Simulated assay, not measured.
Amino acid sequence: MNMIRRRVMSTRIMDYDFSGMNSEIRISIIGKKGIDIKMKKMLVVYYSWSNGNTKKIAEQLANKTGADIVRIETAEPYSGSHEDVVEQGKREVEAGFMPQINPISVNLADYDVIAIGA
């Protein structure tokens, strides 16, 4: 797999109404500084265990920007209650464990801007 090295910038998308979402909104944009995302080919990549807020925000961002969208899925899906999965995730982060993910159906090199949400 070809690795693409690009600068990562964190930004807040202030023009979009994410009201009613009960979570912190953090969107990372991978691309060139000062890029006009409306003029570039954009991809929204997201991971959402429960298909909740992150999925909704990713869909809204894709709809508002005309971006393509793809979901990251773990090879072995998490199971259990929300609390169980959160605790498992904390343990994995502390241990430096990175779960295997399924390949995504797009070529990242085809995009000028990639927004990642998790």
Rank of each mutant, 00 (worst) to 15 (best):
N2W: 08
M3N: 06
M3G: 01
R5Q: 13
R5V: 14
V8Y: 09
V8E: 04
M9A: 05
M9N: 03
S10K: 11
T11K: 04
R12T: 14
I13Q: 10
M14S: 13
D15I: 11
Y16G: 04
Y16K: 08
F18M: 07
F18E: 01
G20D: 05
G20N: 12
M21A: 11
S23E: 14
E24L: 13
I25D: 07
I25K: 01
R26D: 12
R26P: 08
I29C: 14
I30Q: 02
G31L: 12
K32Y: 10
K32S: 15
K33T: 11
G34M: 08
I35H: 01
D36L: 14
D36R: 11
I37A: 10
K38D: 14
M42K: 13
L43M: 13
V44A: 11
V44C: 05
V45G: 02
V45K: 07
Y46M: 06
Y46D: 02
Y46G: 01
W49L: 06
W49K: 00
W49A: 05
G52T: 10
G52V: 00
N53E: 02
N53W: 04
T54I: 09
K55C: 08
K56E: 08
E59Y: 08
Q60C: 06
L61D: 00
A62P: 01
N63R: 13
N63E: 14
N63V: 05
K64L: 12
T65N: 03
G66M: 02
G66C: 10
G66P: 02
D68W: 01
I69W: 04
V70N: 10
V70P: 02
R71K: 15
R71E: 15
R71S: 05
I72M: 07
E73K: 00
T74E: 11
A75F: 07
A75H: 02
E76G: 03
E76N: 13
P77W: 05
P77N: 09
P77H: 07
Y78C: 02
Y78D: 11
S79T: 13
G80A: 08
G80H: 02
H82D: 02
D84M: 10
D84P: 00
V86C: 05
E87V: 04
G89I: 05
G89C: 01
K90N: 04
V93M: 00
G96H: 03
G96W: 04
F97Y: 14
F97N: 08
F97V: 03
P99K: 11
P99V: 00
I101F: 03
N102R: 08
P103S: 06
S105E: 11
V106P: 06
N107F: 03
L108W: 02
A109V: 10
A109Q: 07
Y111E: 06
D112Q: 08
V113M: 05
I116Q: 07
I116S: 09
A118R: 12
